[in-house]
Design a protein around this nucleic acid. Sequence first.
DNA 1: ACTTAGATTTCGCCG
DNA 2: CGGCGAAGTCTAAGT
Lengths: 224, 224
Amino acid sequence: MRLVVARCEVTYSGRLNAYLPEAIRLLVFKADGSVLVHADSGGYKPLNWMTPPTVIEYGEGMIVVRKRAGRSEDRLEIRLAEVLAEFEHELGEEAGLEKDGVERHLQEALAGRPASVEIGLRLVRREWPTEVGPVDLMCRDARDGWVAVEIKRVGTLEAVEQLSRYLEVLRRDPALAECRGILAAQIVKPQARTLCEARLLGCVEVDLELLRGEREPELTLFTA
Amino acid sequence: MRLVVARCEVTYSGRLNAYLPEAIRLLVFKADGSVLVHADSGGYKPLNWMTPPTVIEYGEGMIVVRKRAGRSEDRLEIRLAEVLAEFEHELGEEAGLEKDGVERHLQEALAGRPASVEIGLRLVRREWPTEVGPVDLMCRDARDGWVAVEIKRVGTLEAVEQLSRYLEVLRRDPALAECRGILAAQIVKPQARTLCEARLLGCVEVDLELLRGEREPELTLFTA
DNA sequence: ACTTAGATTTCGCCG
DNA sequence: CGGCGAAGTCTAAGT
């Protein structure tokens, strides 16, 4: 990895055109060909960048990063006015990042405890196939009625639309004509909740850590 | 801006939990409180990060970056096993990034030359309001018929659905009952084109630079 | 403050 | 390779 702090002017042309007037910035050249141009603010996103595979050419006070993009070409031109610092270091192999808490984990946890979505709910199948995509959880309720559960980390209007599409298709089957729908999400947006009510869909917020029993429910206040 | 190359182990907890085993990485501490953890590959995205506002605490071989996130707290813990290089530099103010070629520019260009969408088309209004959102361009065609134009940089199925929703609402007005729809995009996905045909919607690919006359049409091959 | 829509979205999976 | 959906999406604009 090569790090350069430089006063520079940057031009990108490709999917769009972008221009950065001369200023001091951090340039990062990664071993895999990635190039990042960072300012001293603005969070995690570079001002400009190019992802691999790239070809990097060094000229007179100029670095050109090129990349084939279909018929055309992406081009990042860095005009160096002044190099203030420069530094290179071997980093070696990256050990993989492990994530926990994404939608899939929520689905796994709810599949294991469907009753936490609604009392009496029993799982029939995960990823129940339909023409318009798989239903996350297909269940039966306490009275043996069918229930389709759509799981999201954040429950938005779009999630309600998705659940509605599933139900529309499912209910064409006479056996599933009475199928209900429930949106289960860690966070349910107010508008999504409203639309659920309007469409007679269920809607519950679930807590992954609670589900897993890693954290006790905060309902035990007066039990002692 | 402070740059650190270090063998380190990183743990994030917040909206999800993530763990990075010990390896050599680049740590970037920006002036605004942003913290990035980069590997020597993987494009422009950091392995882990925290956006401002943050609080950074330095302990024994340990850096903790914290951030209030509603009721809870986001936390990035960097356990430093070995600092291999360290470096700090003032960067000063960032001169603003200028972009050109995003959807808004395409809309501006097409508003100025609606005939490039379809011969004879004349603009009536940009951002024509409907209950389900504004129609990008509302036009009349050569025969004075109404035409709603939806503009996208990339024309996907979603864009066709959006245009369809507009038309459904517009056509409720008897004056607009015959309103046609056209999807105009720099890139039209094959499936979107197919759906347009099925729904009797128009569908054109447009070239921003051509529109602006910055580039000549490539039609002059045999004119000499 | 909240919601919506765009993004050089990126990224990964699956056909 | 394209299509589809998730993302700690982020970010800016409108309300």
